[in-house]
Simulated assay, not measured.
Amino acid sequence: MNVLEEWTALVCKELGIDPARVDRNLILDLTKDVAHGVARPAAPLTAYLLGLAQGAGTAPEDAVARLRRMAGNWGTATKETMDDR
C-alpha cells in the first residue's frame, strides 16, 4: 500500500466513509484540472465544495465532468467576463 492509499484508508475510517465509494483518481484529475486551469488554491477548495454538495445531496450526477469543463474553459470564460465590463 502506498502513502496515498494508506492516507485515504485512514481518513475514510476516521470520517466513517466507505472507501469503496471514493474514486480517488477522479478527484485527483479534477483537482489537477482546476489547479492548472484556474489557480492552485482553487483545487482543494473545489474538492471541498464538491464534497459539501454531494453530502447535502445537491451535486448533480455529472458534477465532476461539469467542474472539469469549467476549469478547462476558465481562460475564455474570464476573458469574456472581463470584456463584458
Rank of each mutant, 00 (worst) to 15 (best):
M1C: 04
M1G: 07
V3D: 14
V3Q: 12
V3F: 01
E5A: 05
W7P: 02
W7H: 04
A9S: 14
L10I: 05
V11N: 06
V11F: 14
C12I: 02
C12G: 03
K13T: 10
K13W: 01
E14L: 03
E14C: 01
I17S: 03
P19R: 00
V22C: 07
R24T: 12
D29Q: 14
T31D: 06
K32G: 00
K32A: 00
K32C: 03
D33I: 05
D33N: 08
V34H: 09
V34T: 14
G37K: 10
V38E: 08
V38R: 12
V38N: 06
V38Q: 08
A39R: 13
A39P: 08
R40E: 04
P41N: 03
P41A: 10
A42R: 01
A42V: 01
A43G: 11
P44A: 05
P44R: 02
P44C: 02
T46P: 09
A47G: 15
L49G: 06
L50M: 09
L52Q: 12
Q54A: 10
Q54R: 15
Q54C: 03
Q54D: 05
A56T: 06
G57P: 12
A59R: 15
E61Y: 09
D62E: 13
A63W: 04
A63H: 04
V64I: 11
V64K: 02
L67F: 07
R68L: 03
R68V: 03
M70F: 13
M70C: 02
A71G: 10
A71P: 13
A71Y: 05
A71F: 01
G72M: 08
N73I: 02
W74C: 11
G75W: 13
T76D: 12
A77E: 02
A77L: 09
T78F: 05
T78I: 10
E80Q: 14
M82G: 00
D84G: 04
D84H: 07
R85P: 00
